[in-house]
């Protein structure tokens, strides 16, 4: 187990700079999720920690030592790839033991570790199969097994669930959470899915355009987003923004943010914001009600019971003061 310390990390391809000086502290045993839209640099950052991408400037330290010039296999990290990246010509057993063999681990030790990892991941029955005879979920477990047997200080996951179907994704997500609990290792996980980020992370790092937008616990990011980008990225459906006179008590230099789940239906007299009903998405447990304000801005309200009014009718909402977010219109930064 080890901490990871990143200082002033930069990456450039030729003259194109893609990481603009990232600083990050990942504590020993922490589960950290890098999240952001595609092209934000989250995978690049992970690959720089892994040693698969050269570092243009700055340092990556694992434990106490800077690993900038250390080979990937000597960094004490193991990676699980999005595409699993299993060796198709080797059996599951060989896939899992390949790294240990390269490290000249004694055969009985290899055998013990592979079998122990297979036990944990419930893939003991597949050890002699080749990857092509496994389902996507089984392959992903083998990929995780390949990482576990190396007993790394830091686990790196690069969008490990994005090739799985929805049901399997939830199941594997749980398994990864359990694995973290069981092993207690430092884990760094890249995803573009904020649900994965919220459910797995001790700490979320939100990235945009090669810069860190905010670092914090999932609930902190949900309750206290630093800016409009984080506010809309964390939480689903995303936060509603109101400008100008669409909402009561909004200064002209401000944006007011209210999450759909925090809007409460009320009467016209108590309304903060009103909108014309456009569409209702009935999801059983709740309904997502799409509305437009008088200025034409769209917003969503999450309601337990769908309103009994027709399309084009006006609905009124308010929200409790502590659930209202204020951002500077120009910079997008949170007003304290």
């Amino acid at each position: 187990m080890a901490s990871v310390t990143i200082r002033e990390l930069k990456k450039a391809y030729g003259t194109t700079q893609v990481m603009h000086g990232v600083d990050l502290d990942i504590n020993d045993g922490e589960f950290v999720v890098f999240v952001g839209p595609s092209g934000c640099g989250k995978s690049t950052l992970l690959r720089m920690i892994a040693g698969l991408e050269e570092i243009t400037d700055g340092t990556v330290a694992i434990g106490d030592s800077v690993v900038n010039d250390v080979a990937p296999s000597k960094r004490g990290v193991a990676m699980v790839f999005q595409t699993y990246a299993l060796y198709p010509h080797m059996t599951v057993y060989k896939n899992m033991s390949f790294g240990l063999k390269q490290a000249k681990t004694p055969a009985d030790e290899i055998d013990r570790r592979v079998k122990a990892a297979a036990e944990v991941l419930q893939i003991t029955d597949y050890l002699s199969r080749s990857p092509r005879n496994l389902s996507g979920g089984q392959r992903q477990r083998v990929a995780i097994g390949r990482a576990i047997v190396r007993d790394p200080e830091v686990f790196l996951f690069d969008e490990p669930l994005s090739n799985l179907d929805a049901g399997l994704r939830v199941q594997t997500r749980l398994e990864i959470a359990r694995l973290h609990e069981r092993l207690g290792s430092t884990m760094i996980y890249v995803t573009h899915d904020q649900v994965e980020a919220m459910t797995l992370a001790d700490k979320i790092v939100v990235l945009r355009d090669g810069r860190v937008e905010q670092v914090g616990s999932p609930i902190h990011l949900y309750e206290q987003p630093d800016n409009t980008f984080v506010a809309q990225f964390i939480g689903s459906p995303k936060m509603n923004f109101f400008e100008g006179s669409d909402i009561v008590g909004n200064a002209s230099t401000d944006i007011t943010g209210i999450r759909p789940e925090h809007l409460r239906e009320t009467d016209a007299a108590n309304a903060m914001v009103s909108g014309k009903l456009e569409l209702i998405e009935q999801l059983g447990e709740y309904a997502l009600v799409h509305l437009t304000t008088s200025s034409g801005a769209e917003f969503i309200a999450k309601m337990e019971h769908p309103p009994s009014v027709g399309k084009g009718d006006t609905l009124h909402f308010n929200a409790s003061q502590q659930l209202i977010h204020k951002f500077d219109k120009q910079s997008g930064q949170r007003r304290t």
Partner: peptide
């Protein structure tokens, strides 16, 4: 896929090993 070669790098094979153990068999 490039990831398979990268997985080899993570597993600690050198360039010759990548060619001999991964590339040529595949």
């Amino acid at each position: 896929p490039k990831e398979i070669i990268e997985a080899g790098k993570m597993d600690g094979v050198d360039t010759w090993g990548e060619i001999k153990d991964i590339l040529i068999p595949l």
